[in-house]
Each structure stands twice: as structure tokens, then as C-alpha cells.
Design a protein around this nucleic acid. Structure first.
Lengths: 218, 218, 218, 218
DNA sequence: AATGAATGAGTTTTCATTCAT
DNA sequence: TATGAATGAAAACTCATTCAT
């Protein structure tokens, strides 16, 4: 019965549509930015007609926001939960889950989205607020918690890094932007960059431990 | 003598036009991005007519490129020359001229332009190449040179930072982006961020070897 | 059944669009020339929106070229084929098919297009080449062939007209231009003009043959 | 006294200005047509500033009309006067002054202006009327007069050419247009074209009268 | 008289959005 | 649901014309 098949097929596709559209949108917005991307291009890439997009997203802007709202927050959430129950040292956490998190970001589509967000944030103030509330604030809180726990346990010494948790993700940001902009001119090994940076930070944080005389070492 | 005034006024204005236009363009492009900025807006801000822009810039794109090509390279150049003749230690250089350089970037218009470049680089590949050749490559070379000189003189130990000079400017980038995007939600003291980071880097570079005795350490 | 009607209507219209647009374009371009014609006017005349034109033609220039490329060549082609198989005398051909051809040009839209081409040829060099290759060269070749056949059969005497086949169509050109420019001041009977001219040419071509005494004839 | 010189020089130039502008305008309008020609181009070619044009011509349109009104009429006038007092046969007139006139048109700037007029006539109805009254009508009258005189003296037979004097200048028109449009693809010897045509016309006009036996000479 | 910087109306072109099918 | 032809608002860009010098 072709009808049955047709319906089933249609339903299956129907459910997949938003995702298909978002994937196409990711590709196009990433390549050209919001304004320079045409819905036609997204539709063509998703192999649907332009009108169909409007069945699932109210406007180009909403599609863009939906794309950017999707996929970053859960990384942070996951890390935060992991941290709460993490039994080991904070050095182990940074060398383990935190490093993995950064590698995961580089491996995922999120890598494009972060850059896209930076590019378009001015144009979409509500996106900026969304990111701050959903990603930045919880992310910084988590980083702060790591340092706090490290200090509380005597693993870390107190440093300015406690106030500037942003610095923890600085090399990830550098890496993302470099990859997108300059890799063609001069490739960058982002894994090693992250490793080097974690070492640097840990070195700075642990500081006095490697020092013979704790009292005298700052 | 109205004639005198008129001539003087007109001449002064004529020569100032490109600069006036570029200033207005900086403001508008910065606020809305390339595509969303209308030449009408730039013209209105510069208090001239739309057509006048075309007397000085061939197109919206050329105006944008002219804006971005202007003002970053000379900062780097200045630093590079300074470094060559710098008599002191590399720690002094980082704490002195290098810190000043970063503060200068934050104080200047360049702060907006860097973010604008990141946002629009995808759309203007020739700008990307320009930045790589004129800013990134010489900048990295200079940073590399600092570490090399420090190692050669026994001031620094060899670390991965030697390979990843990008990491030196990571917090400046974080600071620029934070200022533009999130300062309204949570202000960031960029001066202190830079200080903290230079400390971190120096600590990592100089290593534990140098610290036995607080008075002697730093 | 409104649906049926609707579909039929829409389909019919869609296929007809390019033709409708070209007709409107013919009218407007003919009346005002290329530069002075606004796409708005063409759209209004075709009862569509400005944007629709761009669904079928890439630009104003392409629309103009499409208009001029259309409809002249086939006249020539038809004549050329006719000539190859024409059984009668060349006088009969000139008095018959060739005269009809000229009358057909006067009756058709081509009459406007030729003038339009003359007006705009400077601006569109590729159109000029197109006309030369597709219309002028084959047209002259055909005229040349007529004279040749006439001479070969002894019907015509050799004259300079053999080298200047252009002269055959001179009155048609005069007629077209007169009609467009001066008919309001002084109407011209183009049919009779053509007749008179064909007589003149035939008289010249047949020339001495019809004269009994060669020495006395001219 | 530099003032004197200056004034003299200025006056001399001042008087020459309109002509200089018209020459530049001829060149530019001829090359690109009315609409596509920019006053800037004309000014540059005349080595003056754009504003200066407006000291001598009220608008682009007036400049164009002034250009086209100039220089054709006097050719006709001259011919007409010549004809009135011409002592020889009309054949001599056609072979002499009339042929010279056509050659003069080809050699002069008028050659461009005629084509320019054809191209733009639609856009400037008053120009069309001007041409009809000043050029076409007197020109046709003169041609008509030639034929009449020839018939009156028994030199010519009555033919349809009497009614269609336009045909006399047909090859000149063909030649002008060919030169402008197709000479690059296939050069045309306009002198010989005119010669051939005058022969053809004379042959037709003198016709059967020079033939001994009317019945056999068509 | 001459200049040429400045203007802004006018035109082409693009593309998000709609809607009849 | 899905389509894609049609729309028309919006924006870049041009250039005749003006006018202060």
C-alpha cells in the first residue's frame, strides 16, 4: 500500500525536518554569516523548498537563534554535574574531564557556533543575554568552583586566576578562531595548545607545592 | 572676512573627509556588522550625503576594508623595533612595553576593529590574508623572539609556550570580546586580567627553579 | 472547480511569462531606448512585479539582449533555404520571395528591433557581433548568391551590385527608419518604395541584355 | 602686463569654449549614446570642469540638442543653391556635386551625428521635427528638383524614383551605419558603394530613352 | 568665468516572506 | 505538508545639477 508507505515516509521526514534544516543552516551561516546567507541556499542544502523552512521557523532570524541556542549549554551542564561528584583532585579534573571537554568542543559543531556567535552577537542582543545566562555564567561558575575546591583542599594556592576564570578558556578561544581564520596559512595543533596551556595553568596554580619552602614561596 | 573663513573651513573639511567617514564607519560597522550597516547611516553620522562617501571610497566593501587595514600593524611594528634594542630582561619587557602595548590596544579604536575583523573575516578572505601577513605573523614572530631571548639568557626555561606564542595574547582577546559582549552583564577589569596573566606566564616561564626565597623570587 | 482553473491559469501564465516580459520590454525599449527605460515600466506593462523579471532574466542588459537576439535570424534562414530550391528565375525570386520577406519585416516586430539595434549597437558590442554573424553575413551571402545565379544563367549582367549586396536592403532600412521617425510628418508608402526599388535594381541588373543595341544603351 | 595677456587669453578661450565642449560632446555621445555619456567624461575630454559646461549649456539635454542642431543643414543648403545655378546636365550634377556631397558627409563629423540622431530620435521628438524641417524636407526637395529638371530636359524618363527620392541617399545611410557597426568585421569601401549606386540610379533614370527600341527594353 | 565638492533623486538589484496550488 | 512563483521593501550605487569659493 503506497499510501501507508508514503505517510510513514512523510512522518519520518517530517520529524527530521527541523534538524535537517538546522544542519543546513549551520553550514551556510557558518560560511557566510547571518546577513550574507540566503534562505535559498539553506533550502537547497536541506533539499527542501524555501517555503518549507517557514513551516518550522518563523523567520530567518528565528532560525538563526534556534541554531545558536541549541547545543552549547549541555556541555557546560554536563561538566558542572561531573564536577560536583568528582572524587579526584582538581588537577585530575583539569587534566581529565576539562581537557576532554575542550577537545569535544573542537570536535563538535559547537566550534563553528562559538565563532558565529562572536560575529553576530552585536546584531542579536537577546542571543548575547542567552549566552551569558546559559553558557558563560554557569561556565565561569564551574571554573571558579574548580579553583575554590583546589584551594580548599590545599592543592592550589590562591592566585588572580580565581577572579579571572575567563583565562581558563582563553586558549580554546584562540584555537577556535585560529582554526577558522588562519589555519590555511599556518596550521595550529590545538590539542597540543590545550595541553601546553593546562600545564601552564596548573604550574601557576600549584605553584608553591613545587617550592621547597611553602611559607617563603609567595 | 567670510571668504577667508569659508575657504579655510572648506579646505579643512575636504582633507578631513576620509577620516570623518572612517570614524562614522567605525561606529556603524562596529555596532551592526558589515551587512546590516547602511551607507545612509554612515553618511548621516558623518553629516554628509550618501554620494559623498563615494567620492572617497569606491564601494561599501572598500570602505570597510580601508577601515580595517588602517590601524593595527603599526602597534606591532613599534613593539618589534623596541624589542630589538631593549636592553633589559625579557621579564621587564613583558611587564613593561608588552603590558603597555596591550593596554594601548584596549584604549584605542583597535579594540573594536579586532572584533569586527573576527566577525567578518569569513566574508573578506583578502582581509584575512592581510591580517595574517601584517599583524599575526609579525606579532607571533616578536613573541617568539621574546621567549627565545629569555631562554638564551637563562632567564626562562624552555616550555611549550615557545611553540604556542598565540597563548601570550589569549587574555587580550578574551578581554576584548568580553568587553564588547558581556561587560553590560558583568564588568571585567581588563587591566588586572592582563596583569594576572602576565604573572601566570612569567611564573610558568621562569619555573620553580628560581624560587627558593621569596625576596629573590620576583 | 476553482482549483482546476487556478492550476491551468497559473501554469499557462508561468510558461507565458518570458514572452509576456519580452513583449512589454519590446514596447518600452522601443519607445525610450535602453538607458531611458525603467524596469518598473516594463514590469507594470507586463502586469507583474519588478522582482519577477529577475526570475526570468538575469539583468536589464540580459533582458535587452534576449529581446534582440530573438527574432531576426530565422527570416534570413528561411529565405536562404527557399533560394536553394527555388526553381524560377532570379527576377522571379526578387519579385516574389524577396519582396515578401521585406514586407514581412515591415509587418513584424522585427521592424522595431532593427532600429533599436542600430540605436544601441555601440553600447553592446557582443550584440553587434551577434547580428553580424547571425543576420548580416548570412543575409549578404544570400543576396550575393542571387546575383551570382542570375549572372550564371545569363539573366543578369555583372555589375558592382555583386560586390555591394548591402544596396539590396537599403530601401528597407530607409523605410524602417522613416516609418519610425518621420511618418508623422510625411507618410511613406513602404510597399511602393520597395516595389520601385526592386524595379530599379532589376533594371540595372538585366541592363544591356534587354537592349537590342549594346553601343546605344548607356 | 600679465593681466592683459591673461584677459586676452581668457577671452580667446572663452570664445572657443562652446566649440571645445561640443567637440568633446560629439566624441563622447557618439561613443556611448546620450544616456550612457557622463558630463564628467565630456568635461575631462574638453579639459574643463564639469561646472563650466553649465556656463554654456543649460543642461545635458540642451548640450545634446545643440550638438545635433549644428552641422548638417548647411550641407543641404549649399547643395540647393548650387543646384539652382548649375549649368550642366543632371547626370553631371549627380556625378559631380551630389557625389562630392556624399563623400563630404563621410569625411565629416556629420557621419557620426546622423547615426546618433537615429539612435536618440525617439527620446527627443523636437530634434526629430528639427531634422525633418531643416534637413530631410529640403534635402528631399532638392533631390526631387534634380529628377524634375532631368525629366523636363528629356535627360531622364519618369520613374517611381521621382516619388521616392529617399532612395537616392539610401546607400549613404547604409554606408554610415555599416562603417559604425560592422567595419571591424568586414570593411566597406564607401566611395565605391556610392559610385556603384549612382551608376545604378542613372542607369535606371536614363533608362529606355537611350534604348532604341522601347518594346524590347522593358 | 571657472572650479569641483557636495548633493540626493532615481534606478537596478536582491531576497525574506507570502500564498495559491 | 510542501512547493516555488511572485512580491515589494530595502539598499547600493550613479550622476546631473548646484553653489560656495
Amino acid at each position: 500500500m503506497p499510501n501507508d508507505h508514503g505517510v510513514a515516509h512523510s512522518r519520518r521526514r517530517k520529524e527530521a525536518r527541523p534538524t535537517e534544516i538546522l544542519q543546513a543552516a549551520l553550514h551556510e551561516f557558518t560560511a557566510k554569516g547571518f546577513a550574507a546567507t540566503r534562505l535559498d541556499d539553506i533550502a537547497r542544502r536541506a533539499r527542501i523548498s524555501k517555503g518549507t523552512i517557514y513551516l518550522y521557523f518563523a523567520s530567518k532570524e528565528e532560525l538563526f537563534k534556534a541554531l545558536l541556542r541549541q547545543p552549547v549549554a549541555h556541555h557546560i551542564e554536563h561538566m558542572t554535574i561531573l564536577l560536583e561528584t568528582f572524587p579526584g583532585s582538581m588537577e585530575d579534573f583539569l587534566q581529565g574531564p576539562f581537557r576532554s571537554f575542550q577537545q569535544a568542543v573542537f570536535a563538535s559543531e559547537a566550534r563553528h557556533l562559538i565563532r558565529l556567535f562572536i560575529a553576530e552577537a552585536q546584531t542579536f542582543p537577546d542571543l548575547t543575554e542567552f549566552y551569558f545566562r546559559e553558557v558563560i555564567e554557569p561556565g565561569l561558575a564551574m571554573l571558579h568552583r574548580i579553583v575554590e575546591r583546589g584551594i580548599a583542599s590545599g592543592e592550589f594556592r590562591p592566585t588572580a586566576l580565581n577572579t579571572f576564570s575567563q583565562a581558563f578558556v582563553a586558549p580554546m578561544l584562540i584555537g577556535l578562531l585560529w582554526q577558522a581564520l588562519f589555519d590555511q596559512y599556518h596550521p595550529l595543533d590545538t590539542d597540543k595548545l590545550i595541553d601546553a596551556y593546562i600545564d601552564l595553568v596548573l604550574y601557576g596554580l600549584k605553584g608553591t607545592q613545587t617550592c621547597l619552602d611553602k611559607e617563603n614561596c609567595r
